[in-house]
Design a protein around this nucleic acid. Structure first.
Lengths: 150, 150
DNA sequence: TATTGTTATACTCTATAACTATA
DNA sequence: TATAGTTATAGAGTATAACAATA
């Protein structure tokens, strides 16, 4: 054996992510959303009141591109921006009621897509996958934001 | 409790995938690669001799965009295209020796990136994550290619 | 007629630099 | 001076239509 190839999770993550996005498109289109809209609403539900800078690192979307994205969501009445009283430079972003409702609709529709893409996994395997990804996501998020011990 | 939100794996997969890609950029740049190059080489190692149409569905890259991507890889001597004797419409694609070597280098460099992004997971958890993603990827791949019972 | 690879092209996503306002 | 948000713009990624060669 010449080479023990590294088990690169990245390549697999890429592949599955692409399949997921591909199959999600029709459902999202019918709701007038693109993938980044959905991702943003999803993260905002857990992290309501984040500043745009916080969102930028959470979503891994450049703050300069985030502006236009939030403009679209705000124009559709899905989110709200308000100035922070403590630091008037900041915009605190929150989901509106309409935003929550649309997010629910999207998740309902996408449940079927995930059932298809993750058809080879049983319920407990999917649960495990979810928990492992959450671990990774939270571990990273806590790095870039407040703490600097990474 | 009004709403039991679906545990959407997709959003997490998106987030972690973005973080991974973000942190991988510098390492890939120094090797003159972009993410899609790496993905393509990685998949080609397992599926040598795939046609471009096969690759298109495996990579979830439109066949029309795949052309230019393969042109770049071929110009760099990383892959080879040859006509299939059985069906002269097809190009069978394979890694060259240089392609394998560059892939190894990239994987070595990216191992450190993955160590960072998946720092919150121990060795056995990463192994589990890898296996679950592989299950999902292979389950989907076997759908779109040969069998049609999905 | 259908499929494989290809080109051209428009559209979306992403990254860089410079500006305004607050701190 | 540094940071949050914004604008403008160039580059990379993606999707659609049309074509030549082969089946």
């Amino acid at each position: 054996m010449i080479d023990q190839p590294a088990r690169r999770v990245g390549a697999l993550l890429d592949q599955v992510g692409r399949q997921l996005r591909q199959h999600s498109m029709p459902a999202l289109d019918s709701l007038g959303m693109r993938p980044r809209h959905l991702l943003t609403l999803t993260v905002l539900r857990d992290r309501a009141g984040s500043s745009q800078a916080d969102l930028s690192t959470l979503l891994q979307i450049d703050r300069t591109n985030l502006v236009g994205l939030l403009n679209e969501l705000e124009a559709d009445g899905l989110i709200e921006r308000r100035r922070s009283p403590e630091d008037r430079r900041r915009h605190l972003v929150e989901l509106t009621r309409d935003g929550r409702e649309l997010l629910s609709k999207a998740e309902f529709a996408l449940a079927f897509v995930e059932d298809h893409v993750f058809g080879a996994l049983d319920a407990s395997q999917r649960e495990t996958l979810y928990e492992l990804l959450q671990l990774a996501a939270n571990g990273e998020a806590s790095c870039s934001e407040l703490s600097s011990d990474c």
